[in-house]
């Protein structure tokens, strides 16, 4: 608990401002309203990437990096499910190296379900989900080994990555794999852009699952989070205006957005 209180009215209102549009658009999407999602080249390339592995007769690797059980993992699972289903249909082979044992149990369940959906449950091999290590560089070296030994045709690098990102992506580059990456950590994005064929930046990772599945819930939530971003954008603009006014007219003693968000109306 650390003695930090977050019970400010501003914080609660901000949470509502972020979440109400999401619920509203989910409801709208479920009622059949068409929701437009712009094209994302990296996600369009998923089918091509899986198809390539089937043509070459070499496996597909889906790497969730250092992602633990978190919203980022759930965003990756939507894509993993889609990729696994395609792999099962094309009778190709999937390898999912794992860093986090808790995430591994969930990943295995999702891949199994995807094979079942494709009607190829008997082809599902639980050993395709390989736990490597909980140590960052041991995981990276394990993945490099798999990429080189199996000569993978396609690599998906989706999730949270740190310093090992370039090592992972270079391994795929060395065997000529087609690589699609998506990272929420902006520090790793340049490495992926340099090394991978397609890179999804930041929130595009969260949009990928909605884009691929066209699920009303996911599409609605995607639309809702765009509105939530507008709320933030509005707050940034108001904050800049208030700060500028305060700078120009100090005698006004204007309180900025952060003051109102953290202001406690009760003690």
């Amino acid at each position: 608990m650390g003695g930090v209180e977050h019970a400010s009215l501003g914080m609660i209102l901000l949470l509502l401002a972020l979440l109400v549009p999401v619920l509203y658009f989910i409801r709208r999407a479920q009622s059949g309203t068409e929701i437009y999602v712009r094209r994302i080249a990296g996600i369009d390339a998923v089918d091509e990437a899986v198809g390539r592995s089937a043509e070459l007769g070499r496996p597909v690797a889906f790497n969730t990096g250092l992602t633990s059980v978190s919203p980022t993992l759930y965003a990756c699972l939507g894509v993993l499910s889609y990729v696994s289903e395609k792999v099962a249909r094309y009778r190709s082979r999937l390898i999912v190296p794992q860093y986090n044992p808790e995430a591994m149990a969930i990943v295995e369940d999702v891949v199994r379900d995807a094979y079942r959906s494709a009607g190829r449950l008997s082809a599902f091999d639980p050993q395709c989900i390989v736990f490597l290590s909980e140590s960052q560089f041991a995981f990276a070296s394990g993945y490099m080994g798999i990429v080189h030994r199996e000569r993978i045709a396609t690599a998906f690098l989706f999730g949270y990555f740190a310093a090992e990102s370039l090592i992972l992506a270079e391994a795929g580059q060395q065997v000529g794999a087609m690589q699609v990456a998506a990272s929420v950590s902006p520090e790793q994005v340049p490495f992926f852009i340099c090394t991978c064929d397609y890179t999804l930046i930041g929130e595009e990772l969260y949009a990928a699952s909605a884009y691929l599945s066209r699920e009303p819930i996911q599409l609605g939530s995607l639309c809702g989070q765009d509105v939530a971003k507008l709320v933030f954008f509005g707050l940034i603009v108001i904050g800049v205006l208030l700060a500028t006014l305060q700078q120009l007219y100090p005698m006004l003693d204007l309180k900025n957005v952060d003051f109102w968000i953290s202001y406690k109306f009760w003690s």
């Binding site: 965003a75 930041g202 929130e203 969260y206 819930i217 939530a228 933030f232």
Partner: peptide, 16 residues
């Protein structure tokens, strides 16, 4: 990138 990812993460957490 951080703001976009954080909002998307928050929404995903809410759905979870």
């Amino acid at each position: 990138i951080r703001i976009g990812a954080a909002i998307a993460g928050l929404v995903m957490a809410f759905r979870m």
